[in-house]
Simulated assay, not measured.
Amino acid sequence: MLQATIADQLEKVRIRVQQAEKKANRPANSVQLVAVAKTKPTADIEAAYAAGQRSFGENYVQEGVDKVQALQHLSDIEWHFIGQLQSNKTREVAEHFHWVQSLHRLRIATRLNNQRPAHLPPLQVLIQLNIDEEPNKAGISLAELPEFAKAVQALPKLQLRGLMLIPKANPSAAEQAHTLQLCQTAFEELQQQIDRVDTLSLGMSNDLEAAIAHGSTMVRVGTDIFGPRS
Rank of each mutant, 00 (worst) to 15 (best):
Q3P: 15
T5K: 05
I6V: 13
L10K: 00
I15V: 12
R16K: 14
Q18N: 06
K23G: 03
N25Y: 10
R26T: 09
P27D: 08
P27H: 06
N29F: 15
S30A: 12
S30T: 08
Q32W: 02
P41E: 05
P41L: 01
D44G: 00
E46D: 08
E46A: 07
G52W: 11
R54I: 09
S55I: 08
N59I: 09
Y60V: 06
D66E: 14
V68N: 06
Q69Y: 05
A70G: 05
L74F: 13
S75I: 03
H80V: 08
H80P: 12
Q84L: 07
Q84G: 15
L85P: 09
R91Q: 10
R91D: 11
E92I: 00
V93E: 10
H96D: 08
F97H: 08
S102I: 11
S102Y: 06
L103S: 10
H104C: 13
H104I: 09
H104P: 09
L106K: 02
R107T: 15
R107F: 06
I108P: 05
A109K: 03
T110W: 05
R111V: 09
N114V: 07
Q115R: 06
P117V: 07
A118C: 05
A118M: 13
H119I: 11
L120V: 11
P121C: 05
V125T: 11
L126H: 10
I127G: 03
Q128Y: 04
E134Q: 13
P135F: 02
P135H: 01
K137P: 13
A138I: 06
S141K: 01
A143Q: 14
L145A: 06
F148R: 04
A149D: 12
A154K: 02
P156K: 00
K157H: 14
L158A: 04
L160R: 01
L163R: 04
K168C: 10
K168I: 10
K168V: 14
A169S: 10
N170E: 12
E175G: 00
H178E: 12
T179L: 07
T179A: 03
Q181L: 11
L182F: 02
Q184T: 11
Q184F: 06
Q184M: 04
A186T: 00
A186H: 07
F187N: 06
F187D: 15
E189H: 08
E189T: 13
Q191K: 15
I194Q: 14
V197T: 04
V197Y: 09
T199Q: 12
S201P: 09
L202R: 00
G203E: 03
G203C: 01
M204W: 10
E209W: 02
A210C: 02
A211K: 00
A211L: 02
A213I: 02
H214M: 03
V219A: 02
R220C: 05
T223M: 06
I225C: 00
F226R: 01
